[in-house]
Every structure is written in C-alpha cells, then in structure tokens.
Amino acid sequence: MLAQFVLFDGFDPLDVVGPFEVFSAAGMVTDQVSAELVAPDGPGEIRSGVPGVSLTAAASLNPDRADLIVVPGAAGSTPPPDRNDLTDEEREATVPAILGRTLTTGLPALLGKALAAPRTTVAAVCGGSLILSMAGLIEGRNAATHHQGLGMLGASGVNVIRARVVDDGDLVTSGGVTSGLDVGLYLLEREVGPKIALAVEELFEYERRGVVWRDLGPAPASA
C-alpha cells in the first residue's frame, strides 16, 4: 500500500507529519506499507505556513500510483470573519487565503482524479477538507474539518459531521490538527489491519480519540 502525503505552499506541518509518521512506522514492521511526501509540481522543498519549517517532496502526487492520498490543511492566521481592516499582506497570510491559492495549482485536478479512481482513498486532515470542498469535489459527501471551518464546509454543499474522524468510503476526513494521528491510525487499521495499527499505536503511546463516524445504524431520536 502506497500512501502519499501532499505538500503545498503554506501547509500545516503537523497535519502532514502526524499521519505520515504513522505510516512510516508501519512500513518498518510490514512490507505492505510505504509512505512518501509528494507535491503537485514534483519533487522539491515546500515551505509550510510555520516560519522556518519546510519539508521536501520526494515525488510527484500521482493518483495512478497511490492507494491513499492525504491532504493537509494550512497554517496561518484566523482573524474574526467580520474584521475588515486587514492589510493585503495580512489577508494573504490567513488560512482561507492559503487554502484558496491551492485552487490555482494542479492539486484540484489531481485530487479529482484520485476521487474518481476506484481503488484510491482520499483523506484530509483539518482544513484539507476545505480544499476538496472549495474545488467542488465533495459536494453531497459526509465530511469533517476544524471547528472554525465547519460553516465554510457546509456552505459548499457538504454534509457536515461534527466528529473526530468521518469515514465516507473513499473519502475519510478529520477535525483539527491533532486528529491527524487519529485518522492515520484508523486508516492503517482499515486498510492494513488492526495488528499493525496496534503495534504503531503502542510505539507512539497514543490512543485514538472519539468515535469514527460512518453512515451506518439508526440515527438518534430528536430531543
């Protein structure tokens, strides 16, 4: 299983590193898993949204090769939505602006191709769900994101689920930045098996949080 972790200018490092390290650790205990950092434009150093922090993409994002593609959110400022006195420089450094700039790259087309591929799963951490929704790729789907982005996610036609991890088949999304570990371990269990996932969980000394939401079973009665 090849898992590709997407980098783009302004990405949030923890969104990437958490689940990437989960799959990298799995690759040390089984030959069924490999992980690589990728970018739409190919190999190279990519600046994160945290000053002084960059990661190096080892390959191009390639839905024809990947079994799993993980999309992070962005690291930037989050001023109140009613604040209208931002300078152009301040506005360009906000999370929505950083995420919006990904739409001018080759990323949306590649993610669309991945979602159309029958054997590929696309996962998103935090604001990565917003990239998918802003690109019009997950309208009508069930998804989660950081609590500050739930309104934007719903406005794009996504069925917003307030859960730590949401499994919608070939689309698996998660909440805020620390949920990257949760979604990474869940995907490892789902795709490779619980024995490998438990081994990594024990190595990291981390227990997954929350219920993974799936569209199964009865809905709770209204209060």
Rank of each mutant, 00 (worst) to 15 (best):
N62P: 02
I69S: 10
R65T: 11
I69P: 09
L61E: 04
A58Q: 14
N62T: 06
T56G: 05
D85V: 03
P40H: 15
D67S: 15
E90P: 10
D82F: 00
A59I: 03
E45Q: 14
D64Y: 01
P43W: 11
A58H: 06
A57V: 02
D82M: 00
E90Q: 15
V70Y: 04
N62C: 06
A74K: 07
P43Y: 13
I69A: 09
G52K: 07
R91G: 05
V70Q: 13
D88W: 06
S60T: 14
I46E: 04
P51W: 06
D64F: 02
D88Q: 14
G44C: 14
N62L: 01
D67G: 14
I46G: 01
V38M: 09
R83T: 00
A75C: 08
V50G: 04
T56C: 07
D67K: 11
T56N: 07
S77G: 12
V50C: 07
L61C: 03
L61D: 01
E89T: 14
P51C: 06
A59C: 05
V71S: 04
A75I: 05
D88T: 14
N84I: 05
P51N: 02
V50K: 12
N84P: 00
I46T: 05
G42D: 11
R47D: 10
I69M: 08
V53F: 08
I69Q: 10
I46Y: 07
V53R: 03
A66K: 08
E89C: 08
N62E: 05
V53D: 02
T87K: 13
N84A: 11
D85C: 02
A39Y: 01
T87Y: 10
D82Y: 00
P72H: 03
V50M: 10
D41E: 15
S77E: 10
D88M: 12
G49N: 04
I46F: 04
D67F: 03
P79A: 09
T87C: 10
P40G: 14
D85G: 03
L55W: 07
L55Y: 09
P63D: 04
R47M: 05
P80F: 01
T87A: 12
V70M: 12
P79L: 07
G44Y: 13
S60C: 05
T87S: 15
G76K: 10
R65H: 10
G52Y: 06
A66T: 07
D64W: 01
S77M: 08
A74E: 02
G52M: 05
A74I: 01
P80M: 00
E45C: 12
A74V: 02
E89S: 12
A75E: 08
P79W: 04
L68I: 11
A57W: 01
G49A: 04
A66D: 05
E45G: 14
A66V: 08
T78D: 13
D67I: 10
V53T: 10
P80H: 00
P43F: 13
A39K: 00
D64E: 06
P72W: 04
R65Q: 12
G49S: 04
L55H: 09
V50R: 12
P72C: 03
I46D: 03
P43V: 15
A66F: 06
G42N: 12
L55C: 08
D41R: 12
E90W: 11
A66P: 05
R65S: 12
L86Y: 10
G73I: 00
V70N: 05
A39S: 07
S54H: 12
E92V: 08
G76S: 11
P51F: 02
G73Y: 00
G44F: 11
A75Q: 11
G44H: 12
P43H: 15
L68V: 13
D64A: 12
R83V: 01
